[in-house]
Design a protein around this nucleic acid. Structure first.
Lengths: 258, 258
DNA sequence: CGGGCAATTGAAATACATCAAGGCGTGTGG
DNA sequence: CCACACGCCTTGATGTATTTCAATTGCCCG
């Protein structure tokens, strides 16, 4: 028996299973999670159905856009996992400067570090309307020890998370503004594609330029200028909260090269 | 029984224990690790002596300054832990730009992510002469499952590591050159102090300005200018590979404030 | 209809990079 | 032991990417 969950689960199967586990709510949100190979939710759903038990204690919450999901001063026993919508994880300085550490998409756990201790200073905020689950840390940890599959899943996410953090540092420290912005776009496109949230080369794009600025360590004004250049060069097109990659090859060059 | 190892171990005790476990080598290096509360080495030493077993398979290596400890293309089964000396962990772009992710001091594990999978692209390089241990990943993982104390230790280190990564991103994305440099100095001082490697307010400082530049996302030239200012302002003093913090209060202000 | 957030654009300021030259210490080979 | 080369640091002049400031427009929402 393989100890790592392979992405054999189709969205339909996951939907059916979800309906079995929790027939009170009709959202397809966590089916999307379950379809995502690396997701924590996937592992949890699987373990729950296999054992014939219900999911570990978790509560579902829905918040409107711009609402705080996790407060920086919160010293919480809970691990939040995004079910639907876009949100943003960041840390800030007292004077208002802030750095976005990640855009969170459906299926993302805020950070695996939350499993092992509270991560104070982290702010998680909804960009669109968001639904998310809160798992109790102790429940998840117990599950982790019982279930090697889940442990493997978490380990994978852990390594992924570390790689992302490394790349973020490299981007912020050593790349130009255009590179950083191009990379954010490509990165988001890739992650959305994994979730079946790309429509050809176009994606819903609820981010404000302020978000991109805070993620790339730049100013909203400068982000506007670079995005303007990208559009004039016909690399991308942005209109009515959606973004289309017109010339992926050129965009990749802008992202990778000096 | 508390599941978290407290720093009750004195350096002397650790030395004695070390001698018991491995009488063939006289270095005090890992005694320092054992004295450090958060260290992986500490947990390992404890478990080894408690069970009356020997340490898990690990090999000790010594390399001269500037030598590579872990190659970016290496897809290794081993987890390196620094025993003595300074080294540096970084990632680089094909065109030569590089970002230092951490300065590694005695007792530091390169990254907890190494426990769960190879982290390709990471380069670890000795700054001074360095001795380090290589643990086999599978051994460590086995130990992790047997031994909740070790698991707790690793969890703690992981959370620490995540916090460090967050702060690095904030520094690189949102702080000025002076702030970044001042913070690096204070951070190193604090970590050295934990290891008993501070001599009052002065520390051995084997780093080249190129290292500081690559850690802060700046140019060696600019680092030189800022360090010059700090010295002229009598915040610090650097001479013959050692650095003294003269005015800690002011240095903290330079580090925290705009 | 009004108010406020978001985006765009241009002009001016600035932080940092690049370029270039010189000095200083250190190891090395003649 | 000297000469020399080389890496490292410093310093100044110049260049440039990005910020800051400011004005204008559009737009969503109350």
């Amino acid at each position: 028996m393989a100890s790592v969950t392979q992405p054999q689960v189709t969205v339909d199967e996951a939907l059916a299973r979800k309906a079995h586990v929790d027939p009170t709510r009709g959202e397809a949100s966590c089916a999307v999670c379950a379809a995502w190979e690396l997701s924590l939710s996937a592992a949890l759903e699987n373990s729950a159905s296999e054992g014939g038990r219900t999911l570990p204690i978790s509560t579902v919450h829905t918040v409107p856009a711009r609402r705080t999901i996790f407060h920086p001063k919160e010293w919480s026993e809970f691990v939040p996992v995004i079910c639907s919508g876009w949100s943003v994880s960041s840390i800030a300085l007292p004077d208002g400067r802030r750095q976005i550490l990640a855009f969170l998409l459906p299926g993302d756990v805020v950070s695996t570090a939350f499993l092992f201790g509270p991560l104070s200073g982290r702010h998680v905020e909804a960009v669109t309307e968001v639904t998310y689950r809160k798992f109790k840390r102790s429940d998840l940890r117990a599950l982790l020890f019982e279930n090697p599959e889940i442990f493997d899943s978490i380990s994978k996410i852990w390594v992924e998370e570390r790689i992302q953090a490394d790349q973020l540092a490299l981007d912020l420290g050593r790349r130009t503004a255009s590179e950083r912005i191009a990379r954010q776009i490509l990165n988001l496109a890739e992650r959305l594609a994994k979730r079946g949230m790309m429509n050809g080369q176009t994606m819903e794009f609820p981010l404000r330029q302020r978000h991109i600025a805070d993620a790339t360590g730049l100013t909203p004004v400068h982000v506007s200028k670079v995005l303007g250049e990208f559009q004039r060069a016909r690399l991308i097109e942005i209109s009515s909260r959606s973004l289309t990659i017109i010339n992926e090859a050129e965009l990749r060059i802008a992202a990778d090269w000096r």
